[in-house]
Design a protein around this nucleic acid. Structure first.
Length: 500
RNA sequence: GGUUGGGUGGCCGAGCGGCUAGGCAGUGGUCUGCAAAACCUCGUACGGCGGUUCAAAUCCGCUCCCAACCUCCA
């Protein structure tokens, strides 16, 4: 298998060889959250997925400019033409806070959660409210190009005219304007629009609307879709490499975004569109608005009717890694329980591997070849549209080899020292640097020197008891530690311990 | 109704024309004072019905289910 990067492009619905516009550099824009309430787990899955993609692109040697916005205005509750209300200002009224206070509060929470999930921060995290000028300019450009019209201080994108000029509109979502017309016929309050599929790019603010800016058309605020067009253009240019986001944004958000960019500069924003699939809970989309969701905190503490216990953030990241980013992932307690054991198996093997040394003598036998094939497989799977589950599978096969070497079932004679070092390097690179995992147990250990010394003493005492066949003492030590979530493993070379 | 994507063994989840996915659970062993861990071993699959092919979970047709989007959502 060749190792050139292949990605699935939502625009063409097929895998394509990835070629950056500028050799060695990548511009990537990912739609960030609307900060009007706490992030939920579904959001996290998308950003963890793109974090892994970002990390892999960096590993491949690209210099990546990763832009992920914060939506702090313009995102509407209800219909844009009627009783439309900005999500942020609605929440501000409910909580009796300034809109920017709301934004700050939930943006902080979002950043904390991204840190907890060990995601790397984007290079630029622009906010919609900080780019009103750019958005107004873009509205003007679209108007100048005749692809928008003003009605009572609001400006609408003319989808009909755009569709007549090119066949771009609907390409991403597979929708046709004719269908859209039929679908939206029943919607009320469409009076301002020329056509039901047209969408607002500037909205005149109602008197009670708090977040408002002056513009050539009215005191108002930008349409939701506009911010991403304006900010991606500002920081990545008219045409850039990757645009990502959750699959639920394909339509209308991304479709309209493409239309706006074409409307403004007659250019296609991104070459590759990547969409992550939804996180489900009990077979249904996890969603803030319909209540079918669980907060990350609840998952960590286990305080939810949906789960039997708490799960660590890194375990959850591992859980997400086990499925492909383009597949839905169903969150169930059984699946989490199974993943947790797998996660421990992986981490324990890595810990064991780190402590192992190659005896020095060893030739390239069949085992060596097998290991080399597995190592090569890890990267080729990742280069095949970031196939984390398959790359992980290869690593688990390596885990078996490592454990076999450790237990003596496999011989170092058949493995060269170089190959053995490559296993170590591969584990470090993929598990930690690219998959972005951390070993919870090690992190939880805290002040290790005291703990290590203490455990050494206890294990030594137990060993003495065992030598004396004092099983009562021996088992008491083991059971007591088990109750403290410290697990002992008796191996050939003595006893090891891990914190659960 | 339209659009997009799915239905894989007890569970999760890859694969998408011939080649063991992987994790968890289960079977029988090895090891061990016992247990755990680890290693070896063995089962249980590709919604249904047709078709193409030397060969289909993988391609085509029909059919039945499911999800997402079409209204804010990652």
């Amino acid at each position: 298998m060749s190792n050139q990067l292949v990605v699935h492009n939502s625009l063409t619905r097929q895998k394509e060889v990835f070629k950056p516009i500028n050799e060695g550099a990548i511009g990537m824009y990912v739609c960030g959250p609307t900060v009007y309430s706490d992030v939920h787990l579904g959001n996290c899955r998308t950003f963890v997925s793109f974090d892994t993609i970002y990390r892999y692109l960096l590993h491949l040697g690209y210099s990546v400019r990763y832009v992920r916005n914060i939506t702090d205005v313009g995102h509407l509750v209800g219909d844009a033409d009627s009783d439309a209300e900005d999500k942020i200002s609605k929440k501000a009224r409910l909580e009796q806070l300034e809109p920017m206070e709301i934004v700050q509060k939930y943006m902080n929470g979002f950043h904390d959660m991204m840190k907890i999930f060990n995601t790397l921060p984007p290079n630029i995290e622009p906010r919609a409210t900080g780019h009103i000028v750019e958005q107004i300019e873009m509205v003007q450009q679209i108007l100048d190009n005749g692809l928008a019209y003003e009605k009572n201080g609001s400006v609408y994108f003319n989808t009909i005219k755009f569709a007549e000029q090119s066949d771009v509109y609907g390409q991403l979502s597979g929708k046709k304007l004719d269908d859209l017309m039929v679908e939206t016929r029943d919607l009320k309050n469409q009076s301002e629009k020329n056509h039901p599929s047209d969408f607002a790019i500037w909205i005149k603010a109602a008197p009670e609307h708090i977040m408002r800016w002056n513009s050539p058309w009215s005191v108002g605020f930008p349409g939701w879709h506009l911010e991403c067009s304006a900010m991606s253009t500002k920081y990545l240019g008219n045409n850039f490499d990757i645009h990502g986001g959750g699959g639920d944004l394909k339509f209308p958000h991304h479709e309209n975004e493409i239309a706006q960019n074409h409307g403004a500069c007659n250019c296609s924003p991104a070459n590759y569109w990547l969409h992550t699939n939804m996180l489900l809970m009990n077979g249904k989309k996890m969603s803030k608005s319909d209540g079918n969701s669980i907060t990350p905190q609840q998952l960590f503490t286990g305080d939810s009717e949906h789960i039997s216990k708490g799960y660590s953030p890194m375990m959850l990241r591992f859980f997400m890694l086990q499925s492909h980013y383009r597949s839905t992932l169903d969150l169930t307690d059984d699946a989490l329980l199974a993943a947790e054991k797998g996660y421990r198996r992986l981490m324990d093997a890595n810990k064991a591997l780190a402590a192992m040394t190659h005896p020095g003598k060893g030739s390239a036998g069949d085992l060596d070849k097998e290991i080399q094939t597995l190592i090569a497989g890890v990267s080729s799977e990742m280069s095949d549209d970031f196939n984390c589950p398959k790359a992980l599978a290869k690593i688990f096969e390596l885990v078996t080899k490592v454990n076999g070497l450790k237990a003596g079932h496999l011989s170092f004679d058949e493995v060269t020292a170089e190959t053995f070092e490559q296993i170590k390097a591969t584990f470090q690179l993929y598990i930690f640097d690219i998959f972005g995992l951390k070993d919870d147990a090690q992190a939880a250990g805290g002040d290790n020197s005291k703990m290590d010394g203490l455990m050494e003493l206890v294990i030594d005492m137990r060993a003495t008891a065992r030598t004396n066949k004092d099983w009562g003492t021996s088992d008491k030590i083991r059971d007591t530690l088990q109750a403290l979530k410290i697990k002992l493993k008796d191996g050939k070379d003595g006893t090891e311990w891990t914190v659960e």
